[in-house]
Design a protein around this nucleic acid. Structure first.
Length: 423
RNA sequence: GUGGGCGUAGCUCAGUUGGCUAGAGCGCCAGGUUGUGGUCCUGGAGGUCGCGGGUUCGACCCCCGUCGCUCACCCCA
């Protein structure tokens, strides 16, 4: 019989490890809600042009990493490779009142070779805020990410910031950079020797020593911003500082999507040894709504990868490994299981976490399962209890471990609750 | 796309210079216990040694191919 595996680059998160995901998603939802972000549900796939025009048709992600397919109606669609473009598409489609603040949790798909902290399907949480250019919104978005990491117990996180200016001052800088790179073309790495003029900003991102040596001595983005962009960036940094959030200026941080303007930022985990140490990132994208056919609308947001957060969390030893969800009570029934069905239902309706055995197992086997379930008490039903319409409640843990008492079946919820809340 | 490492039980792994019915721990199941868990003792189930081909009297071991996992480059979460 042929066996199947999850497709290359994808993975399952079975329990108990998935408990961490539930916890992280819950914390993120709470933080977002308290900051006035509402949940946006949107399709996993879009017209491929949403991403081409959104993240930039020349970007690596758009050119060679997208899962593109043609549906039965001949439409060219793509699985979302990142979160922002879809959100802005939804904004343009619905034209909600601004500021429009939404959060999301979504898988993202990129066709690339998997390695540590990199998958073909990964999962992101993020927020987007459209309709305001106020630097206070940049601060709010970045702070939300920082508070999320704190809430997960992460400590070894650094915040890198940069500003890419708006199209005009960046244009002037890019021209300057192109000229500089042209003069030093022979010193660049092999890949960029030819291609530097196509997209000069990309060279800033290159980690090869040859390129780094050239770009770190060349013109720096933050030094060439117009006055407005310079002020905006300064206000963002001051705002972050006022919240106790330290920033590291990263003048060559440009990130891989073309839509960014002004503020860009990246959170890196110093606990991750691999090259994939960015646990979250984002920035401003003041021209993106217009790119997608909407009115000129400023926007800012971030996305964070759950798989990498989990890796960072593990690397930091930030918490206990996910434990099995503990049961409150385990129902043992040696009379066939019908009583277990009704007792479990009653106890669950009372809000307790209830487990039971199946397949008419022996008393010993059921008690062993009860013990391993972590339940504080076992509710036992045998022929005697069945005849008397009672149950035996046995304490499995704590000071009174092993003690047991018989109660009428009608009192089971109260009797169990009393013992469970005690622990 | 390119390169390195690795594929033996559900999991983590041993397996000698190629040589007997391929092992251990954990987990799982049963018994020791005339209704009662953990610790302990005993027993049991479970493996086409990733797959295909080759060398050999003989392959888990050597060779080739292939698939998968993993790490790295590029880029990103």
């Amino acid at each position: 019989m042929e066996t199947f595996r999850a497709p290359i680059g994808t993975h399952d998160v079975p329990p108990p490890a998935s408990a961490w995901w539930e916890d992280a998603l819950g914390r993120f939802a709470g933080l977002a809600r308290r900051s006035g972000f509402g949940l946006l549900i949107s399709p996993l796939f879009e017209d491929v042009a949403v991403f081409d025009r959104g993240i930039g048709a020349t970007s690596d992600v758009a050119t060679k990493e997208m899962y593109v397919f043609t549906d039965r109606g001949g439409r060219q669609l793509a699985l979302r490779p990142e979160g922002t473009a879809s959100v802005v598409r939804a904004f343009v489609q619905h034209r909600p009142p601004t500021p429009w603040k939404v959060w999301y949790a979504t898988p993202a798909f990129r066709y690339e070779r998997p390695q540590a902290g990199r998958y073909r399907q990964h999962h992101q949480v993020g927020v987007e805020a459209l309709g305001s250019a106020d630097p206070a919104l940049d601060v709010e978005v970045i702070a939300l990410a920082a508070r999320f990491y704190e809430a997960l117990g992460l400590r070894q996180v650094r915040l890198l910031v940069n500003s890419m200016g708006h199209p005009e001052c960046r244009g002037a800088y890019v021209a300057l950079l192109a000229q500089y790179l042209g003069a030093h073309a022979t010193e660049l790495c092999e890949e960029h020797r030819e291609r530097a003029q196509e997209n000069p900003l990309r060279v800033l991102d290159c980690k090869r020593p040859a390129c780094v040596a050239v770009t770190e001595r060349g013109p720096q983005l933050p030094d060439h911003l117009c006055e407005e962009c310079r002020d905006h960036f300064a206000t963002v940094r001051e705002g972050l500082a006022s919240l106790g959030l330290d920033t590291t200026l990263a003048p060559r941080l440009v990130r891989g999507f073309d839509y960014y303007t002004r503020t860009t930022f990246e959170f890196v985990s110093d606990a991750l040894a691999s090259a994939q140490n960015a646990i979250g990132g984002g920035g401003r994208y003041d021209g993106l709504a217009e790119q997608l056919g909407g009115p000129p609308t400023p926007g800012v947001g971030f996305g964070s990868g759950l798989e990498r957060l989990r890796l960072a969390w593990e690397a930091e030893g930030a918490g206990d490994p996910a434990a099995d969800p503990r049961a409150d009570v385990f129902v043992v029934d040696t009379t066939g299981g019908q009583r277990a069905t009704t007792l479990a239902d009653a106890l669950r309706r009372a809000g307790l976490v209830v487990e039971r055995a199946y397949d008419q197992r022996s008393m010993k086997a059921q008690m062993r399962l009860a013990d391993r379930s972590g339940a504080a008490v076992a509710v036992l039903v045998g022929p005697q209890e069945l005849a008397a319409d009672s149950v035996t409640i046995r304490d499995l843990r704590g000071a009174v471990e092993g003690a047991q008492v018989s109660v009428p079946a009608s009192d089971v919820v109260a009797a169990v609750r009393e013992r469970v809340t005690e622990r």
